[in-house]
Amino acid sequence: MKILILCTGNSCRSQMAHGFMQSYNKDLYVRSAGTEASGKLNVDAVKAMKEAGIDISHHTSDSVEKYLGDEWDYVITVCGGANENCPVFMGKVEHRLHMGFDDPSHATGTDEFIWSEFIRVRDEIKETFYKFYKEEIEPQLL
Rank of each mutant, 00 (worst) to 15 (best):
F89E: 01
A52L: 12
N83D: 15
E112S: 15
T128G: 02
F132Y: 06
F89D: 01
A37P: 09
S116D: 04
E36Y: 11
L141R: 13
I114H: 07
E94D: 06
F20K: 10
K134N: 08
I54K: 05
N25H: 14
K26H: 09
E36P: 00
K40W: 00
F113Y: 15
L68I: 06
S61F: 04
R96F: 09
L6W: 01
L68M: 11
V30D: 05
R96S: 14
H18F: 06
K92S: 12
D102V: 10
C12I: 01
M1N: 08
R122T: 11
D44L: 13
P139D: 06
A107G: 12
I137K: 02
A45P: 03
I5L: 02
G109F: 11
R31Y: 10
F118E: 00
N42M: 07
M21R: 11
G69I: 01
G39W: 13
L97M: 14
A48E: 02
W72S: 04
I76D: 08
M90R: 08
D73I: 08
M1H: 05
N42K: 07
E124V: 06
F129T: 10
H18W: 08
C86S: 14
S105F: 04
G100E: 10
G109M: 09
L141Q: 08
V121R: 11
L141K: 14
C7V: 06
F101D: 02
M21Y: 06
E138Q: 14
K50Q: 14
T110D: 09
K47V: 00
A52S: 14
D111M: 05
G91V: 08
V43T: 13
P139M: 01
W72G: 03
H59W: 03
G9Q: 12
E94W: 01
L68R: 02
E84R: 15
I3S: 05
E135N: 11
E112K: 15
M49R: 08
G34I: 08
F129D: 02
S57D: 04
F20M: 09
V46M: 00
P104I: 09
L141V: 02
F113D: 04
E51C: 06
I54P: 04
N83Y: 14
I119L: 15
V43P: 14
F101K: 08
A45Y: 05
A33Q: 14
T77V: 10
L141C: 04
